[in-house]
Simulated assay, not measured.
Amino acid sequence: MDMKIIKSEKKVCPCCMEEHEVKTVLVNEQASFKDVNVNYEAVYSFCDEAEELFMDDRQMQDNDIRLKDAYRVHEGLLTSVQISDLRAKYGITQSDLCLLLGWGGKTITRYESHQVQDRAHDTILKKIDEDPEWFLELLNEAKEKLPIESYQKYMEAATRLYEKKQDVYLRKAIEASYAGFQGKQILHGNTSLSLDKVVDVIKYFAASEKVTNLYKVKLMKLMWYADALSYKTRGAAITGLVYRALPMGAVPIGHNSIIDLKDVPCEEVDMGETNAYHFQLSGKHTFPSLSKEDKYILDIVIDKLGKMSKNDIIAFMHKEQAYIKTAPREVIQFKYAQSLLI
C-alpha cells in the first residue's frame, strides 16, 4: 500500500484494541465532488497488527475538507486555508469579516470548515486578499458597528498592507515606463533597471555628511553623474535609469514616482508658493544592493559635487557634452559619458 507516514505514537489501537505504535499516514485517493473527479491526500490511522487503515471522527472531518479543497483548487477557488490566511493578514475574526461584507455571521466559519463558497463570494474574498485599500473602505463603512479596539487593530494591519502593496504597484508602474527602452543599451547605460539600487543610491547620497542641501534637483544630477561615471569607468551604469535633458539638467524618467518609493528618505517642505523635496538620512544604514565598486563611484561623485549648491551643479552640468549635444527633453545617450567633466 502506497502511503506516507507523518506521525507515530504508542497508544491503545481502536482497530485491534491492543497497545502498540499507531501510525498516522497520508494516502493518495480519488473522489468525486459536484461531479468533478479530484485527487487528494487523505489522512488515516494505520494498524500494523491488522494491516488496516481506519479513521476517527477528526480525521473524517479533515478528509472532508481535504476533498473540498482539492475541488476548490481544480475550480480556481480559494481553499479553506487560503481563506483563513487572508483573515490572518488583517488579524480579523470570522464574525467581523462577515460583518464587513454584510454576510451571515457564520458564513466564513462554514467556508473555513465544511462548505465550498460560491464563485461570487470567492471573487469578493480574493479582492479582499489582494486589495487592502478596498478592505480599508469596508472597514470605515462598518466603523460604528465594531468595538473601537477591533477597528483600530484592523485599521493598523490594513494600513501596513496597503503601504506595502502601494510600493509594489508603484514599482510596476515605473518598470512599465521603462519597457520601451529594453535592448537600447546606450540609453540605459548597459544596465537593466534596478529599483533596489535606485533606492539605495538615493539613501547613500542622503546619508552622506559630505552632501549638503540635498533637494530633488541636486539629487537628480548626482544620480546622473553616478551612472555616467560608472558607465565611463566600468562600461555599465549603476541603476539602469534613463535620463532626459530638461532645463535644469538631467532628470530620470519616472522621477516623480521614484521619490515616492518605499524607504526613500524624502520629506516634502513647504516653501510658500511651492513645495520642495528634501532628502536626508541620519544614523547608520546599510545599502545591501550596492557593491563596493558602486560605493566607490558614489564616493567620487560626493567628493566632487556633494557640497555644490543647486545652481552650481546645474551650471556645471550645462557644460557637459551630454547636455550640450542632447536636444531639449530628449534622452541623454551614455556615449557622452566618455567626455565627463569629473
Score class of each variant (00 low, 15 high):
Asp2Glu: 15
Ile5Asp: 03
Ile5Met: 09
Ile6Cys: 09
Lys7Met: 10
Glu9Asp: 04
Lys11Tyr: 05
Val12Cys: 03
Cys13Phe: 14
Cys15His: 13
Cys16Ala: 12
Glu19Ala: 12
Glu19Leu: 07
His20Trp: 14
Val22Trp: 12
Lys23Asp: 06
Ser32Arg: 11
Lys34Tyr: 14
Val38Glu: 10
Asn39Phe: 11
Tyr40Lys: 04
Ala42Leu: 04
Val43Cys: 10
Val43Ser: 07
Ser45His: 15
Glu51Ile: 04
Arg58Glu: 14
Met60Asn: 01
Met60Tyr: 02
Gln61Ser: 13
Gln61Asn: 08
Ile65Glu: 00
Ala70Tyr: 03
Tyr71Pro: 05
Val73Trp: 03
Leu78Phe: 06
Val81Trp: 06
Gln82Thr: 03
Ser84His: 05
Leu86Lys: 06
Ile92Gly: 05
Thr93Arg: 05
Asp96Gln: 12
Asp96Ile: 03
Asp96Lys: 12
Leu97Phe: 10
Gly105Val: 12
Thr107Trp: 04
Arg110His: 13
Ser113Glu: 13
Ala120Leu: 13
Ile124Glu: 09
Ile124Cys: 00
Leu125Lys: 02
Lys126Glu: 06
Lys127Trp: 00
Lys127Met: 02
Asp129Pro: 00
Pro132Gly: 02
Pro132Phe: 00
Glu137Asp: 04
Asn140Asp: 12
Lys143Glu: 13
Lys145Ser: 06
Pro147His: 03
Ile148Gln: 13
Ser150Leu: 15
Lys153Gly: 06
Tyr154Asp: 01
Met155Asp: 01
Thr159Glu: 14
Tyr162Cys: 07
Lys165Phe: 02
Val168Asn: 04
Lys172Ala: 13
Ala173Phe: 11
Ile174Gly: 06
Ile174Ser: 06
Glu175Leu: 12
Tyr178Arg: 12
Tyr178Ile: 13
Gln182Pro: 00
Lys184Pro: 00
Lys184Ala: 09
Asn190Met: 07
Leu193Gly: 09
Asp196Ile: 09
Lys197Leu: 03
Ile202His: 09
Ala206Gln: 05
Ser208Val: 04
Glu209Leu: 09
Thr212Glu: 13
Leu214Arg: 01
Tyr215Met: 05
Val217Leu: 07
Met220Cys: 08
Asp227Arg: 14
Ser230Met: 07
Thr233Val: 10
Gly235Leu: 10
Ala236Gln: 15
Ala236Arg: 15
Ala237Pro: 14
Ala237Asp: 08
Ala237Ser: 15
Gly240Ala: 04
Leu241Tyr: 09
Leu241Asp: 04
Tyr243Phe: 04
Gly254Tyr: 05
Asn256Ser: 14
Ile259Pro: 00
Leu261Ser: 07
Lys262Glu: 15
Asp263Tyr: 11
Pro265His: 11
Cys266Thr: 11
Asp270Asn: 13
His278Trp: 11
His278Asn: 12
Phe279Gln: 09
His285Asp: 05
Lys292Tyr: 05
Ile297Tyr: 06
Leu298Phe: 08
Asp299Glu: 15
Asp299Lys: 01
Asp303Tyr: 05
Asp303Ser: 09
Gly306Lys: 08
Ala315Pro: 00
Met317Gly: 15
Lys319Asn: 12
Gln321Pro: 07
Pro328Val: 07
Val331Asp: 07
Tyr336Phe: 13
